[in-house]
Write a protein that binds this DNA or RNA. Structure first.
Lengths: 134, 134
DNA sequence: CGGTATCCTATAAGATACTG
DNA sequence: CAGTATCTTATAGGATACCG
């Protein structure tokens, strides 16, 4: 868990994954969107690729020169529930500024991160829940 | 979102919320469980109380002197989906060491953080999902 | 217990310029 | 574009001791 906290649960890394999931995939876009120093962006991208969260690939926009871009790997996509949970908490208890919002393509509805038991029931974090290790 | 990242999505803060949700509520327990320097624990507890995630209250164990302990507020409990999502990612893609695990009191089943659309459908992060701002 | 205080070191961050 | 390089300042972290 320790290195999970240091890589994917780190401030700039969370922002970068968020921006990538919003469709920003290029170095300069990510730099501009997050406001982080270029060296920080470079460092986090390196770590995230190393951690298997992002992959880099060459991309050629119609008519433009080829460049590279960062995309979510399957492991990166598995971070979306975390992103959703974070955005939800921010919307409810943090700032009022707009945040990340996931939508269901099939119906356009708003998607939330919730807790569900393997018995099929949705579980409120405020009750019926116990934490343990393992 | 910026200060959400700096407070609740910060390394030691995440560890502390985790430990508190596991029932560790006292300063020294938290220090021992996380391994963070005492000054760091003190700082994060202060910030988390300030952010409304934790509350401190006096507590008297049967036969022991009164001491203070930290408990999750409702806003703190709202962080549990985030904790679950983080633990899940760690279990799937991170270390193999044991992590946080939520159980449904009613049935003992394992509880997971999943994405659910307001239309009622559970949504896989790997499809049918689009991210946007707001 | 539940913190503060100190001190020193190690990273991280911000600004800015440069290169293939 | 996509990074490196450099430099300076700001935080964070670790160790340890002390106090009400």
């Amino acid at each position: 868990m320790e290195d999970v906290l240091r890589t994917v649960a780190e401030r700039w890394a969370l922002l970068i994954v968020r921006e990538v999931s919003l469709g920003r995939r290029r170095f300069d876009e990510l730099q501009a969107a997050t406001g982080a120093p270029r060296a920080v962006i470079a460092d986090r991208l390196r770590r995230l690729v190393e951690a298997g969260v992002l992959a880099t690939r060459p991309y050629r926009a119609p008519g433009r020169r080829t460049h590279s871009e960062y995309v979510l790997t399957p492991a990166g996509i598995d971070l979306l529930p975390l992103q959703a949970a974070l955005a939800q908490w921010g919307a409810r208890h943090g700032t009022t500024e707009p945040g990340l919002d996931f939508r269901h393509v099939a119906c356009g509805g708003h998607v939330e991160a919730v807790l569900v038991c393997e018995c099929g029931q949705q579980v409120s974090p405020h009750e019926r829940l116990v934490a343990q290790i393992n």
